[in-house]
Write a protein that binds this DNA or RNA. Sequence first.
DNA 1: CATTACCATGAATACGTTATCAAATTTTCA
DNA 2: TGAAAATTTGATAACGTATTCATGGTAATG
Lengths: 333, 333
Amino acid sequence: MAKQTITIYDVAREAGVSMATVSRVVNGNPNVKPDTRKKVNEVIERLDYHPNAVARGLASKKSTTIGVILPDITEMFFASLARGIDDIASMYKYNIILENSDEDVDKKVEVLENLLAKQVDGVIYMGNAIDDRLREAFKSARTPVVFAGSVDDKHSMPSVSIDNEAAVYESVRKLVENKNKKIAFISGPLSEPVNGKFRIEGYKRALADAKIDFNDNLVFETSNTYDDGIKLASQIASSDITAAFVANDSLAVGLLNGLQDLDVKVPEEFEIISSNNTSLAKMVRPQISSIGHPMYDTGAVAMRLLTKLMNKEEVEERNITLPYDMVFRQSTK
Amino acid sequence: MAKQTITIYDVAREAGVSMATVSRVVNGNPNVKPDTRKKVNEVIERLDYHPNAVARGLASKKSTTIGVILPDITEMFFASLARGIDDIASMYKYNIILENSDEDVDKKVEVLENLLAKQVDGVIYMGNAIDDRLREAFKSARTPVVFAGSVDDKHSMPSVSIDNEAAVYESVRKLVENKNKKIAFISGPLSEPVNGKFRIEGYKRALADAKIDFNDNLVFETSNTYDDGIKLASQIASSDITAAFVANDSLAVGLLNGLQDLDVKVPEEFEIISSNNTSLAKMVRPQISSIGHPMYDTGAVAMRLLTKLMNKEEVEERNITLPYDMVFRQSTK
DNA sequence: CATTACCATGAATACGTTATCAAATTTTCA
DNA sequence: TGAAAATTTGATAACGTATTCATGGTAATG
């Protein structure tokens, strides 16, 4: 009953060839006579032989596995990216080892070492915070790494993302055009470059273009959660702010619902533009205007870039910027 | 520059011991003198030695990796389960290889074989459809498999889930108590046992208890998407149906928004109870009453069960049913 | 002090492939 | 037809670790 694992050696013996030949057949090496190929394939079929990927990995030094590090798979944004990655990965016969980092530095480094120990052929990193220790770990790894959905602000790593500065600029300009004078900037931690550097720069530039003074009191640093959006609502409602750019959809929905619970009319009395345009944005009422982040494509392109790097192909550009679009819905006039 | 991989052999030589001893130290084998352990550890530290997990896997026949098969990681329900799985997995030092199946039978079988080739120590399967071919593949695998979030209706596989029949019964009973006579049952494919068997049985039982005749025209079979919920709305609105159990949150939100767009008042004119209580349910207005499915816990418990099976520990019960709770919000009176 | 039991260690081998290189076979071409 | 070239094949050595079994050393026992 206990059918023992059948190996390449069993196939070789049964087919009357050497294991080298079996290996060639399995790997599609052209240097094998059609007759023997057929014979070997028959035996493989008959014995139901499946190559052991671990042994193969040891011998070839390739695992056909890549590591994916992300903050939290339950965040729609990262799940969408992950889906794009996985689809392209499986197209190229790679598997994905998923690791949730919770944006915890120690955990990230640990997780990376773990992945490297497993001999992954490449790593895709998602997440906004990146500290020197992690950057160092990435650099000393002999394994290609691609950032997806964010860029290392020092541009030391290959990456795929959108131009967040421009996208936020465009969003805020729209709010300005709609006659708003007091426009809030609401995001997660400003320590993350995407917020504290790129996005806020876009915000400032749009204000400057409109000759509106930047006011620190209009910058709200919170977490990217629905609940924090709700909490923020009363504070916002009791101010004279009339519009906000919100860097995350869940956060924006929280704010939206919170404001409406306080009888603030959106968009008549308050306008909102969020970032990412996850499915959430069109599921709430009023539907939220949002920066259309090509999430799936970002993952897909990142994975494609990674395949090139793993293959040591020449890549023209290591830092890829994907186009975004502005999706205006009912949360703006 | 090109720092070559340093192996257990390098450590052994440098520490003046055999590789067997190094292996013992690395694996925490108690049979090693404290002095030598210390010495070896120092060398490991100094050389920055990291055991090669692939070689280890080949030698020990354990990969400390498990496979996770799910329909689509971008569905909140599965993402939450996956998160629970991952947290427990990393607690037990396992890694997760993620595979999206898209509920495609061929792809599932292929994906499973791929996972087995990679010598995963266990598999967690999520998804509602399961055909004989896949069941056969699971059974012939010498690797433990656990179903999470669904049960094989033949109970041939270990599983962790809630009692969907009871949960739907309770939901529909609530709708009956609220004086609804025409109550719709809306779900994804009835070919999936969770819908076509468990959930609809609960629906029928609740109707029978209330002496309401089961009417096939009140059963709507669709897909679990927001858009299909929207589409369904006009059909529902033009009928005399006054309430619905909806087997999926996205679908329910689509229906809710669709109805409201048609000026149907929820819950005054139409009541909705959905299944799963993902974060979506409380993000829309009115908030949706829902079956509180312990998604994270389901994943966590499934993973814990899997560790026991991989460890060949005795398990008292292979089919675990987790408690759910009913979360009544504003979509019911 | 001699004997036994136990603990710590090392040598050698297995794990199942791929890769290298030489040998054997076939094909080509003058 | 014979030599050279090209193609196909096999023997064998990695790959980096865990594991088994034997052995030497040390402590315990009488």
